[in-house]
């Protein structure tokens, strides 16, 4: 898991997308997600994917990281499509939908610090859930590092070897058992520290305002356009399907422009 790199990209990045307000990004993501849900047209869903790739390229996101995160669910979707889809094309659309939705989520996560993503949720869920969300994300860094160290120690002591799956499984299990006890102690310490710092049952996060309202508006307009295209092609599919090849043209041009701009600025 690339939690460290994700957080670094979200907090240290300085692209046009990083400067868009978290609310606008979440709204745009919800809109694109709606477009993915609506469409069953392989070319329209493919166009959404290309459009999101263009956005990721223009925001100069770590392409390997974004791709690995977006492709991971595609592999699970592939298994689901293989086992459940009744046609090859239906399976392709299922995999594309998974990749596109994941890419949208990944773009938001790579450009928005996690407290700002959780903040809107904190307003609708019980306080304990909102606080636990922040604690979970914070604990992930600590546990992943600790677990990595435990596994390295087990490997160095020949506890984990490719040719000995039983021994490897036993070592991994013990490492997880140790991690569980460490996590328990960590939670006690965290709570003590939080109480000493004045925690009284609510962690508060204030959302930052937009750095540029026109950029926010442009992002939302783009997302709404994608949704409008998806809805139109869904409603009038019998008439419009023969012209579906038109839809990817604009995102492909956008992607080409984003690639050129990225190369020039590199």
């Amino acid at each position: 898991m690339h939690i460290g790199r994700i957080d670094s990209s979200a907090t240290l990045g300085d692209s046009w997308l990083h400067r868009v307000s978290p609310k606008s990004k979440l709204l745009a993501f919800a809109t694109v997600l709606a477009a993915v849900i609506v469409s069953w047209n392989v070319l329209v869903v493919g166009s959404l994917t290309i459009a999101l790739v263009a956005v990721a390229v223009s925001a100069r996101l770590d392409s390997r990281l974004a791709a690995s995160l977006a492709i991971y669910p595609a592999m699970f979707a592939l298994i689901f499509a293989f086992s459940a889809a009744t046609s090859l094309l239906g399976g392709v659309v299922i995999v594309l939908k998974a990749t596109t939705a994941a890419l949208g989520a990944v773009i938001v996560v790579l450009t928005t610090p996690y407290p700002y993503i959780f903040a809107p949720l904190q307003r609708i869920v019980p306080g304990i859930v909102g606080d636990a969300l922040l604690m979970t994300y914070r604990s992930l860094f600590l546990l992943l590092e600790k677990f990595g160290n435990l596994l390295t120690a087990a490997r160095l002591r020949s506890g984990i070897r490719a040719g000995h799956p039983v021994r490897a499984a036993r070592a991994t299990t013990r490492a997880l058992g140790g991690l569980l006890l460490y996590a328990f102690d960590l939670s006690q310490r965290s709570y003590d520290i939080m109480r000493m710092r004045g925690y009284e049952g609510r962690l508060r996060v204030t959302l930052p305002r937009s750095a540029s309202l026109p950029t926010d508006a442009a992002l939302l307009t783009g997302a709404l356009t994608l949704l409008a295209v998806s809805i139109t092609w869904r409603v009038e599919w019998q008439t419009l399907n023969p012209f579906s090849w038109v839809v990817p043209v604009v995102p492909v041009l956008g992607l080409a422009l984003a690639l050129i701009a990225r190369r020039r600025s590199a």
């Binding site: 304990i128 604690m135 979970t136 604990s139 992930l140 960590l186 709570y191 939080m194």
Partner: peptide
């Protein structure tokens, strides 16, 4: 008072 515990158990499951 178990908010941190929920956090670490959730994190553990994700790990």
């Amino acid at each position: 008072r178990k908010v941190p515990l929920v956090g670490v158990v959730a994190a553990l499951m994700i790990v």
